[in-house]
């Protein structure tokens, strides 16, 4: 399996000052975003933040207000047909024709993409455990999970350059989520680019190298997940054996909770002073966690709220 090469050096997706008014309301208020080729990019935000509107602009379903939206260097609205030759799209709530079988539906979408039996269809069906027997049944008898699998296959079966997904794992069981993660990683390893929105932070954390966080129609932060974690406080759980200390004096340490011998600490970047202090006590167990994306996300939201936005 090889991914078609991009013909331009432009960023795969570039949004600049993008707005989208709906009457007096603005779903997007100046979104800036750049996704480079080969990226596995997560687009985070709660419901109503502007994720789906941004994706619909990128995929040419919605005409932008002000600003620009370019995909492969092309205008997302005017050149949407040319763009769609090179993308795969998984919407947040895809509908299907209940009267068609799964195979008929996939073949129909394949024909619309210009290929009656798309190159990756068979492999994807096997990986996602959609056997021929299931595909020969009408879609109206499918469970939500099976429909989601069909939706994933239709997005990837024609081997696009760019995969755009809106809440891709909704309805997938944990095992199939792992299969999906593997498929996406293989896709990017072959040179493909992934742009996915989600409000399930652990999923994005596991999969994506870069993220953008959107709130109220504006991107409030972007960057590598690892960079965003840097400098953030980390969580430590300490279980003392015997009598715990009265207090901890190490700099940069806050005691979050204290339940008997189990203490929950929040630690800044320097852990050495804390370890030296804890060495004077009898410790039964200790867990030191890296900061989760969820905490970063909540930090951003809290700071935005406190700044009056």
């Amino acid at each position: 399996m090889t991914t078609q090469p991009s013909t331009t050096d432009a960023p795969i997706i570039q949004l600049q000052g993008l707005t989208k008014p709906y009457g007096k309301l603005h779903a997007l208020k100046g979104v800036d975003l750049t996704v480079e080729r080969g990226a596995l990019y997560g687009f985070l935000g709660p419901n109503g933040a502007g994720k789906t509107t941004s994706i619909r602009v990128i995929t040419g379903f919605i005409r932008p207000g002000e600003g620009t939206a370019r995909v492969f260097g092309l205008d997302a609205w005017k050149d949407s047909v040319a763009i769609k030759r090179r993308i795969g799209f998984l919407p947040d709530s895809p509908g299907m024709y209940g009267g068609l079988t799964g195979q008929e539906f996939l073949d129909y979408l394949g024909r619309l993409s210009g290929d009656a039996r798309p190159v990756l269809q068979r492999e994807l069906l096997e990986r996602l455990e959609l056997p021929g027997e299931a595909l020969s049944r009408k879609l109206k008898g499918y469970s939500q999970g099976m429909k989601r699998k069909v939706a994933l296959v239709q997005a990837m079966q024609h081997n696009p350059e760019l995969l755009i997904m809106d809440e891709p794992t909704d309805g997938l069981d944990p095992l199939m989520q792992q299969v999906f993660f593997a498929l996406v990683r293989e896709f990017t390893a072959r040179g493909g680019t992934v742009f996915m929105s989600s409000h399930i932070l652990p999923e994005v954390e596991e999969l994506c190298e870069r993220v953008a966080i959107i709130r109220g129609g504006r991107v409030i932060t972007t960057g590598k997940v690892a960079d965003l974690r840097d400098g953030r406080r980390r969580s430590m759980t300490v279980v003392f054996r015997g009598q715990p200390p009265e207090k901890l004096d190490a700099p940069g340490v806050e005691v979050v909770t204290r339940v008997g011998v189990t203490w929950q600490l929040s630690v800044s970047d320097n852990i050495n002073a804390l370890l030296r202090e804890l060495a004077g006590y009898d410790i039964e167990d200790m867990v030191y966690e890296r900061p989760h994306l969820e905490e970063l996300f909540m930090d951003h939201y809290r700071s935005e709220e406190s700044s009056g936005d």
Partner: peptide, 14 residues
């Protein structure tokens, strides 16, 4: 209404 248009018009179709 059915949501099928999102899959259909995600193809290179004028």
């Amino acid at each position: 209404e059915r949501g099928t248009i999102l899959l259909l018009l995600a193809r290179p179709l004028v």
